[in-house]
C-alpha cells in the first residue's frame, strides 16, 4: 500500500486544504486497511506521536492512541490538561517546543481556541493534525463522515445531505460542509435561526458553487434527503429552558421522524449523542453512526501512515 509523496510530512489543519483527489486517496488507503487490518501493524515502529488534548476527549483521543500504537508508534502527551504544566499556564507554543525537544514525529492537537492547530503548524516543522480547534474545524472527523457516506452509497456526488443541529458553534458541520464542497452534493442546513451555518462557511460554499439551502424544520425537507447528519443542540445555546425544550424537539430523530424519510436514507452522528438521536433508531437500516465511529480507527491509521511515510 504505497503512500503518495504528497502526504509525507503534511499538516491536517482544515478540510479546505484538501481536494477531491487527495480525499479519494485517503479513502482508498482506509478501505485497504479495513480489508486487511494487520497490514500496517508496526509500520511506524520507533516514531513518536504526541497527542495534546487541551480539551478532554474520549473518542477522538482513544482512536488516535490506538491507531498510533497499532502502527508501532510510541505515544506521549495528555488527554486532559489537568495535571500537566498546561494547568499551570504553559502556552501551546511552549508545549510544542518541549515535545519537539523530546523528538516528536507528529502532533495531534485538540484545543479550545480557534486557529490553534494552524498556529501550531506554523511554529513547528513536525506535522500537525487538528483534532478540533474550538468551534472552527475537526477535519479528520469530516474525513470519517465522508468516507462513511461514500461507503454506504458508493459515491458522494449527486446526494442531498442534511446537516442538522448546532451549526453555528459546532465544528463538525463546518468541516463536513467544506469536505462536501469537493463533490457535486447539495447541502441543506437544518437549524434554528440563531444556530444556523456560520457566514464564513456559507460564503465559502457560495464561492465554490455549492448548492445549499437553509431550513428551520426537519419535517419540511425530510423526504428529500439522502443523508441526515445529526448534531446536538446544547442547552447553554438556548438559555430559556422552555424555549430549549420546544426547539430541541424540532431537531430530534426518533422512529416517528423516520416515517417521513426515504428508505435509502442514512443517518450519521459524530457522537456522543444526548437525546437528539434516540436509541430506537440504532437497529434500523438508517443508522450509520456506529459504522461511522468504527471507521475512525482505520482512517486515522491511514492518515498517520501517509503523513509519516510508513512502509506499505
Amino acid at each position: 500500500m504505497a503512500s503518495k509523496p504528497d502526504f509525507f510530512g503534511r499538516d491536517i489543519v482544515s478540510m479546505r486544504d484538501f481536494d477531491r483527489g487527495q480525499l479519494e486517496l485517503i479513502f482508498q488507503q482506509t478501505a485497504a486497511l479495513e480489508k486487511t487490518p494487520e497490514g500496517l501493524e508496526g509500520a511506524l515502529d520507533g516514531k513518536l506521536a504526541v497527542l495534546l488534548f487541551f480539551e478532554p476527549s474520549t473518542r477522538t483521543y482513544s482512536s488516535f492512541q490506538v491507531a498510533a500504537e497499532t502502527l508501532g508508534l510510541r505515544v506521549s502527551g495528555f488527554s486532559n490538561p489537568k495535571g500537566s504544566s498546561v494547568s499551570k499556564g504553559e502556552t501551546l507554543h511552549d508545549t510544542i517546543r518541549m515535545f519537539e525537544g523530546y523528538g516528536a514525529d507528529c502532533f495531534v492537537i485538540r484545543h479550545g481556541r480557534m486557529g490553534a492547530a494552524r498556529f501550531a503548524a506554523e511554529i513547528t516543522d513536525v506535522p500537525v493534525i487538528n483534532a478540533g480547534d474550538g468551534r472552527r474545524e475537526h477535519p479528520t472527523q469530516a474525513m470519517i463522515d465522508l468516507y462513511t457516506i461514500r461507503k454506504a452509497f458508493g459515491k458522494l456526488d449527486g446526494l442531498k445531505v442534511g446537516i442538522m443541529g448546532d451549526l453555528r458553534f459546532g465544528r463538525t458541520p463546518s468541516s463536513l460542509s467544506y469536505g462536501l464542497s469537493n463533490y457535486q452534493a447539495e447541502l441543506c442546513f437544518i437549524a434554528p435561526d440563531a444556530l444556523q451555518v456560520r457566514p464564513e462557511v456559507e460564503s465559502f460554499l457560495n464561492q465554490h458553487g455549492v448548492t445549499s439551502s437553509k431550513e428551520t424544520n426537519l419535517k419540511s425537507v425530510a423526504e428529500t434527503l439522502d443523508v441526515l447528519y445529526v448534531t446536538r443542540i446544547q442547552k447553554e445555546r438556548i438559555p430559556d429552558p422552555t424555549e430549549y425544550e420546544r426547539v430541541k424537539k424540532l431537531y430530534e430523530v426518533d422512529l416517528a421522524a423516520l416515517k417521513d424519510m426515504k428508505p435509502s436514507l442514512k443517518i450519521l452522528h459524530p457522537l456522543p449523542r444526548v437525546g437528539e438521536l434516540t436509541t430506537e433508531v440504532d437497529s434500523t437500516i438508517f443508522a450509520q453512526y456506529f459504522a461511522q465511529a468504527a471507521s475512525g480507527l482505520p482512517l486515522r491509521m491511514a492518515l498517520l501512515n501517509m503523513i509519516l511515510g510508513g512502509a506499505g
Partner: peptide, 29 residues
C-alpha cells in the same frame, strides 16, 4: 476565542483581504 487572543501565546494576528466583499478574514479563526 481566537488563538491570536490567547494569553501569552506569541501569535501575530493576520488577516487576508477579501477585496470583493470589502472585508478581512482572520487567518487563524
Amino acid at each position: 476565542t481566537c488563538i491570536s487572543n490567547g494569553e501569552r501565546e506569541p501569535v501575530t494576528p493576520k488577516f487576508a483581504t477579501l477585496k470583493r466583499d470589502r472585508s478581512l478574514q482572520c487567518h487563524y479563526c
